[in-house]
Design a protein around this nucleic acid. Sequence first.
DNA 1: GAAGCGTCCCAAGGTGAGGT
DNA 2: ACCTCACCTTGGGACGCTTC
Length: 224
Amino acid sequence: MLYFGRFIKRYKRFFVDVEYENNIITCHNPNTGSMRNLLVKGAPVCFSRSNNTKRKLQYTLEGIYLDNQWIQTNTIKTNRIVYNALKKGEIVEFTNITKLVREYSIGNNRIDFYLESNSQKILIEVKSVSLFDREYAMFPDAKTERGLKHLIVLKNSIDLGYIPYLLYLIQSNRGKFRCAEEFDKRYCEIYKELVPKFIKPLFYQNVFDPYNNTNSLHRLDILK
DNA sequence: GAAGCGTCCCAAGGTGAGGT
DNA sequence: ACCTCACCTTGGGACGCTTC
């Protein structure tokens, strides 16, 4: 079950203040991104409540309502959604999965998923795409050293016998995608150099329904 | 002393690894 | 099975150093 309130502010990276029934409550915000364009004061938000007594914060921010759509902000959930979709065969690019590992270590780095499918060794790094304008879903939403490192690791994994994929989980209802040069020019240069020539991109839209607390993934055909 | 810049560290929670 | 610990993430504050 989710609760509904209004966004007030984000601070110290993990904290979000939310107005709920004339009170201000502090939620944990499991999102390491900048959340640029999402943090609009007064915007409707939804959050969950945990019974885990070890937690300092009882509540967790799950999504924000912007531009007539719910954007799922909980990136731990989004990785779990992809994991479940892989297990159920909903990511149509990967069938006959015989092995599936989360947080796969390769050298000193971690990639979200490693799987074996049709005798192929596949790496998948998931990126949650919450930035958008009138037309495009965009990534990244801030300068991302880690994202750049992931591109290099994925490219280098080819020499080790892996087939690398980038799965962009688009949180908005935009049907187009572009690399946001205005936020990280270097990342986009490397992106254009490696994708799709070396790293295969996949685009799936995540439709989040907080009233029933459900998700559904829809494959998007995006050439760019 | 003030201003600007760079570096370091901490915040919370999920996860895997390793120990018992 | 259960527990503990390390790791990972980014924003922002604290702090030290340099320059004016």
